[in-house]
Design a protein around this nucleic acid. Sequence first.
DNA 1: CCTTGACCTAGACCGCGCTCTAGGGTCGAT
DNA 2: ATCGACCCTAGAGCGCGGTCTAGGTCAAGG
Lengths: 133, 133
Amino acid sequence: MGDSPAMTIGEAARVTGVGIHTLRYYEKQDLLRVPRTANGQRRFGPSELASVRFIAQLRKTGMPIGTIREYAEMVRSGTATADASLQLLENHRDDVLRHLDEQKRYLTAIRLKIAAYRAEIQPDEPAGDGAPT
Amino acid sequence: MGDSPAMTIGEAARVTGVGIHTLRYYEKQDLLRVPRTANGQRRFGPSELASVRFIAQLRKTGMPIGTIREYAEMVRSGTATADASLQLLENHRDDVLRHLDEQKRYLTAIRLKIAAYRAEIQPDEPAGDGAPT
DNA sequence: CCTTGACCTAGACCGCGCTCTAGGGTCGAT
DNA sequence: ATCGACCCTAGAGCGCGGTCTAGGTCAAGG
């Protein structure tokens, strides 16, 4: 049990946290290729699990399905397109970086709003709970 | 021209970057109340513009429409619910903070992947372009 | 007078990313 | 042999957040 080298889709869902339906969907979208047993059941080995986990990360950082598919295709075609896939990943890193900066800016704006708000509704300043401002 | 104290929806869209359809949609969703001229046209004054801009920030930091509506309602009901609206904003600040941390973690994972990839496809190390790794 | 352009409403439609259903197969234990 | 827990496919449905269309009003300029 655990990462033994060929899990069913249910086990893969449990260990990756991705959801059976979603795993099948990702395969149908060609983000992922999963080997089958003689009677057609999917078997997730370590490399498939690694793919799933990486795809999940790309998704959580906002990469659209279509772009992940492009990436997956390039990775599959091997060294011929290695530069391109690296490039894609670097672009995504930069996107994430920009997103982070943007979020930080919004965060300070929200904090200012909170501070203004607080000042407005209770001009005196009790101790507070130590939470970040 | 610019922020003169009552712009049409088109002008408001231009200066806030929000889009006419979206502005109307936000109003319909009750995130926003906009005064009208005698013949029914919306007029965005400075305070409406400020609302729009803040709503846009909340959206960009991932707050769902429904939550923004709650916030707007509390703000409208004035001091009676000031604590609650402040609370909501603070919760959101914490959500954004968590999101930021998460994204940072994913970012380092992506960077690792890039580094591994690079090592794999070109074991020698030319100068590079000075971009962040 | 009539065109042009910007505005109005109600409501249809869309893209994305899942998420679930229907209908069916397989396998191991009782 | 039949039950239960799993698996399969194809395709429908959903939640969200817009985005657009149709059909109409109004005001200014030529």
